[in-house]
Amino acid sequence: MLRDITLGQFYPTESCIHRLDPRVKLGGTMLYIISLFCFKNAAGYLLAALFLALVVRLSKVPFRFMVKGMKSILFLLLITVGFNLFLTPGTPLVSLWKLQITREGIILAATMAVRLSLLIIGSSVMTLTTTPNHLTDGMEKMLRPLKIFRLPVHEVAMMMSIALRFIPILLEETDRIMKAQIARGADFESGNLFKRAKAMVPLLVPLFISAFRRANDLAMAMEARCYRGGEGRTKMKPLLYTRADYLAYGVLVFYMVFSITAGRNTFYVLPWK
């Protein structure tokens, strides 16, 4: 059944990483990604990989789920590696027709591959251990200072959580409309891409109409329950830092200092620099 789909890629289990405040995880992921772009030698990447392995281990999410996220960007990864491999000028090693592989190219391509993989796995740790709801909450709270620039932070977070709530409903509706149209002879499966795209029109029109109708109803229901934006609103489940969260922040800072000093230290500089 469509209504049973899980949103995002949350992996439900109990672990200390799951229990962390979403703000810690969001901030941590951000810092981790920044750290990946600071390294100048292999030692940094090694540290980053070790740190990530530790976090993955703590999160109790099977490693194959992490790799699943990699699949979707495999193509992008290959292109990046390819470009770096063939188009970096330097000392040529192998020449194939017009392309040549240089020493610098190999090193750069390898660095890129490692960096991208760590980046993807690092951010999937966050999405795998945090419910979408928690993520929106965390984002709302973290971005609150942006309010002084008149950014509607609360509203955006509310829209995100409503969107998450309505995805399964709209999916179900799509399914229903599709069946209704098939019953009347619509054909969604045969023909070329253009034909199939055209066949989607009788699906999209009713879907949009119903989505607008739902939005209208929902807005009315929210107003009837005294919703008037973020001002003066309290939270049923406020985000509160616990000792574990502070500890996690500490670990993060330690990791940042340690890995970046190691990663930028010219003492370990590998042959190419």
């Binding site: 709530r165 929902l218 229901a221 329950r225 005294c226 008037r228 609103r233 309290t234 489940k237």
Partner: peptide
Amino acid sequence: IIGQVVEEDVGFGPEN
């Protein structure tokens, strides 16, 4: 229904 969990939805009005 606004909340993604029953209890959160019931809490929506009081939050407001």
